[in-house]
């Protein structure tokens, strides 16, 4: 990653853009899903569960962000944020359904 910025191929630049989008938006989705999941599963009063979920969500965002730039390819970056988001969404859906049948 020396400063040969001008000489970098377009595919590389697209891959970096894709990773950045995955990190910013995919990572946010993952963090939001994690916060919902924590909120719905924590066995404490409602307002406290919400606060805990929100506070912990940023750690998920952080890890998702790191993942998006640490993994081997841009495709992996997207998979790595979308698959866990989907799983968390399903768990949240289940928890929500059990609370409000």
């Amino acid at each position: 990653m020396k400063s040969k910025a001008a000489g970098l191929p377009i595919s590389y630049r697209l891959a970096v853009t894709s990773r950045s989008l995955a990190a910013v938006f995919g990572g946010y989705l993952l963090a939001a899903m994690a916060s919902v999941c924590i909120t719905l599963l924590l066995p404490v009063p409602r307002a406290e569960a919400v606060i805990s979920g929100m506070m912990l969500s940023f750690l998920f965002y952080l890890v998702a962000f790191l993942w998006c730039f640490a993994c081997r390819s841009a495709w992996q970056a997207w998979l790595g944020v979308l698959v866990p988001s989907l799983v968390l969404a399903m768990i949240s859906g289940l928890a929500y359904w059990m609370k409000n049948p």
Partner: peptide
């Protein structure tokens, strides 16, 4: 600073719960 504005930037769990 993230915690201070968490209700604004991460409202998903408020919406899910309330």
């Amino acid at each position: 600073s993230l915690v201070i504005f968490m209700a604004m930037v991460m409202p998903a769990s408020i919406i899910a719960s309330y």
